[in-house]
Design a protein around this nucleic acid. Sequence first.
DNA 1: GCTTTGGTGTGATGTAGATCACATCAGTCA
DNA 2: TGACTGATGTGATCTACATCACACCAAAGC
Lengths: 191, 191
Amino acid sequence: MDEALQKLKNHIQETVKLSESEWDFIAPHFSFKRLKKHQFLVQEGIDVPNEFWIVNGLVRSYFMEENGKEHILQFAMENYWVSDFNAYQNHEISTLNIDCLEDSTFLVMSFEDREMMCERVPALANFFRIKSTKGFIALQKRVMGLMKDNAETRYNDLIEKLPGLTQRVPKKYLASYLGVSRETLSRFSND
Amino acid sequence: MDEALQKLKNHIQETVKLSESEWDFIAPHFSFKRLKKHQFLVQEGIDVPNEFWIVNGLVRSYFMEENGKEHILQFAMENYWVSDFNAYQNHEISTLNIDCLEDSTFLVMSFEDREMMCERVPALANFFRIKSTKGFIALQKRVMGLMKDNAETRYNDLIEKLPGLTQRVPKKYLASYLGVSRETLSRFSND
DNA sequence: GCTTTGGTGTGATGTAGATCACATCAGTCA
DNA sequence: TGACTGATGTGATCTACATCACACCAAAGC
């Protein structure tokens, strides 16, 4: 836990300056969580009081159609923030599932604590502002890819962006992230 | 201009509290801009020192493939913030175009001013943090729609979300936003 | 007024990728 | 060790949508 908090402190300080007293105020509001592969961090139909910073491991966030088809919205690993942000921000029940693709550990922060800390510690508000802007930009690039590129190009872009991922997850998950069928992906992924 | 600033003040105060002295500090850093239909707010290949708050009017932000095909990323109107946020945030040249679909007016804020004001006025940092989070959530919903819905469903969702838009823009632009050809859209949009 | 330009509909045809149906192979568990 | 279960590849077929090629009409510019 202490080690995890130290890592988080470094992570935040890559983006904003944080005084020792500010950090001492923030740190106690995080709790530690450990999950095994296949366990769920967030589940559809349940409220989402927390967001999570991944200390280590790998998760996927996905949603399901009525017919049972799954679509992966995001892979998240070390240093990523994850949650069902829609449910979290608007106090709704989750429409997403987030489960672990590997044993993983997290630091957990509640919505109330986040809002309170952002009021009290402006640097933290700026940290989340900048993180959120970058998340927005990344998603916008994803939309652009979905609109202009075919499945094979999107696959090549993905393995270029996250080269380690192919070794860590089955290809059916890559297909689900790319919005393409497992079979189609198999026809052009030659390795 | 004064009227526009008053509207902006109200807009910000819908999300965060802002003291009079804070507002008096912020307000002078906005400038006013007026464009006619077909004029450009942002152009591909040029740097993007500003973001814009739309006082009134309607713009589209879009990108082009090498072959000249256009894809609309966003329609933005009254109360929306627009820019090429990737270029703006990372000081890169623009890959997007933003042009006016109607005569429009804007309040303009530079990147340096925004960062400076967010440092000095924590409420503003929180304002942009929350706005940015909501933008992220909206984009995530768009990705989900692209992954699970067919073109007709996406069209119906769009006219439900922005019912006025169909009257304000040609259908080819709706098609371009939805990621579908003009002809295909024409076959199921019966009005 | 006439001409040009842009918006829209619609038929015919082409195609990326989905779906269905298998086969193979590795890992896991009793 | 033998029996599942899950990951992967591959052929055959189907389908949503793109593309091409028109026609028609309203608004804008000379």
